[in-house]
């Protein structure tokens, strides 16, 4: 289980990020990428336990004996979905600065970039990033809190 997780988790995460970025033109998007990222985290969680993220990856000390709600990871997850909501709303408010209705999107095509030649930058990507953060934060919060039960 641990060996599988070691190999799978990086692949899943890279796949999730590529799904998020390509979502505008190919199958993918914030929601799918978010769920996939959650799967990666859940895999770590099942294989190593919740403390591993803090102790093993980030090298921080985990204070034992505190409730699940004070757990560092859970706080981080909760912050993630609040951040996601903020990004989504802010990307919508951004349109107001250009005298457009709330949440209207646009895109620009940036030319002459090495390797890619041209890249399309859609403002919707910011919104999608918000979706991504909310999905990851919400699912992981629920998963860790319910899982701790």
């Amino acid at each position: 289980m641990k060996t599988t997780a070691r190999i799978m988790v990086p692949i899943i995460l890279v796949l999730a990020i590529s799904l998020l970025l390509q979502g505008h033109n190919l199958p993918g998007g914030g929601f799918i990428a978010g769920v996939l990222t959650t799967v990666a985290f859940a895999l770590v969680y099942v294989a190593y336990g919740l403390d591993y993220l803090d102790a093993g990856v980030l090298g921080r000390d985990v204070e034992p004996g505190r409730g699940i709600f004070e757990h560092r990871s859970v706080t981080a997850f909760r912050r993630t979905f609040i951040l996601g909501l903020a990004i989504a709303v802010a990307s919508g408010l951004g349109a107001l600065a250009f005298d457009e209705p709330f949440l209207s999107q646009t895109f620009v095509i940036v030319e002459s970039i090495p390797i890619y030649h041209e890249i399309e930058v859609a403002s919707a990507l910011a919104f999608d990033l918000g979706v991504y953060c909310v999905v990851v934060g919400v699912l992981l919060t629920i998963l860790s809190v319910v899982g701790a039960e």
Binding site: G23, H24, N25, L26, P27, G28, G29, G30, F31, Q105, T106, F107, I109, E120, A122, A124, F127, D128, V131
Partner: peptide
């Protein structure tokens, strides 16, 4: 919308 994935363009 600037995207060929219609589903995603509708969503975002």
């Amino acid at each position: 919308g600037g995207g060929t994935n219609v589903v995603n363009v509708i969503l975002v």
